[in-house]
Amino acid sequence: MNTFYEFFAGGGMAHAGLGEEWKCLFANDFCEKKAASYRKNWGDDHLVVGDIAKVKANQVEGQADLAWASFPCQDLSLAGNGVGLDGDRSGTFWAFHKLMKQLDKDGRKPHMIALENVYGAVTSHGGKDFEAIIKSLVSVGYRAGGMIIDAVHFVPQSRPRLFIVAVDAKLTVPSELCAETATPAWQPAAIVKAYNRLPKKLKDQWIWWAPPAPDTTPGTLDQLIEHEPQGVTWHTPEETAKLLEMMSEVNAQKVELAKQAGRLKVGTIYRRTREGRQRAEVRFDGISGCLRTPSGGSSRQTIIVVEGEKVRSRLLSPREAARLMGLSDNYVLPERYNDAYHLAGDGVAVPVVAHLARHIFEPLIESYRRLQLVKVA
Results as ranks from 00 to 15, higher is better:
residue 2 N to P: 15
residue 6 E to W: 07
residue 19 G to H: 10
residue 21 E to S: 15
residue 23 K to Y: 00
residue 28 N to A: 01
residue 29 D to M: 00
residue 32 E to F: 03
residue 33 K to T: 13
residue 38 Y to F: 14
residue 40 K to N: 09
residue 42 W to R: 09
residue 43 G to L: 08
residue 44 D to K: 07
residue 47 L to M: 10
residue 50 G to R: 10
residue 50 G to I: 05
residue 54 K to Y: 00
residue 55 V to W: 02
residue 55 V to E: 12
residue 56 K to D: 08
residue 56 K to V: 01
residue 61 E to M: 02
residue 67 A to K: 05
residue 68 W to H: 10
residue 74 Q to V: 06
residue 75 D to R: 12
residue 76 L to R: 12
residue 78 L to R: 15
residue 79 A to C: 03
residue 80 G to S: 06
residue 85 L to H: 08
residue 86 D to T: 03
residue 89 R to V: 04
residue 95 A to S: 09
residue 100 M to C: 15
residue 100 M to N: 05
residue 104 D to A: 14
residue 107 G to N: 11
residue 107 G to P: 00
residue 109 K to R: 15
residue 109 K to N: 03
residue 109 K to G: 06
residue 113 I to Q: 04
residue 118 V to E: 02
residue 119 Y to S: 06
residue 120 G to N: 01
residue 120 G to Q: 11
residue 121 A to C: 01
residue 122 V to D: 02
residue 122 V to C: 14
residue 123 T to L: 07
residue 129 D to L: 05
residue 130 F to A: 08
residue 131 E to W: 06
residue 140 V to A: 12
residue 144 A to S: 11
residue 153 H to S: 12
residue 158 S to M: 04
residue 164 I to W: 08
residue 165 V to M: 13
residue 167 V to H: 04
residue 173 V to L: 14
residue 178 C to R: 14
residue 179 A to W: 06
residue 188 P to G: 09
residue 190 A to W: 00
residue 192 V to P: 08
residue 214 P to E: 07
residue 217 T to K: 15
residue 220 T to F: 11
residue 236 T to V: 09
residue 240 T to P: 04
residue 240 T to V: 05
residue 242 K to D: 13
residue 245 E to D: 13
residue 259 K to P: 10
residue 259 K to M: 15
residue 259 K to V: 13
residue 260 Q to R: 15
residue 261 A to F: 05
residue 265 K to S: 13
residue 266 V to C: 04
residue 270 Y to S: 09
residue 270 Y to D: 12
residue 274 R to N: 05
residue 276 G to M: 00
residue 278 Q to Y: 06
residue 278 Q to H: 14
residue 278 Q to R: 15
residue 286 G to T: 10
residue 290 C to W: 14
residue 295 S to D: 07
residue 300 R to T: 15
residue 301 Q to T: 08
residue 301 Q to V: 14
residue 305 V to E: 15
residue 308 G to W: 14
residue 308 G to T: 12
residue 310 K to P: 11
residue 315 L to D: 00
residue 316 L to Y: 07
residue 317 S to N: 14
residue 333 L to D: 03
residue 338 N to L: 05
residue 340 A to Q: 00
residue 345 G to A: 04
residue 346 D to W: 03
residue 348 V to A: 13
residue 349 A to Y: 01
residue 350 V to H: 04
residue 352 V to E: 12
residue 354 A to R: 11
residue 355 H to S: 04
residue 356 L to G: 03
residue 362 E to K: 14
residue 366 E to W: 00
residue 367 S to E: 15
residue 373 L to W: 03
residue 373 L to I: 03
residue 374 V to M: 11
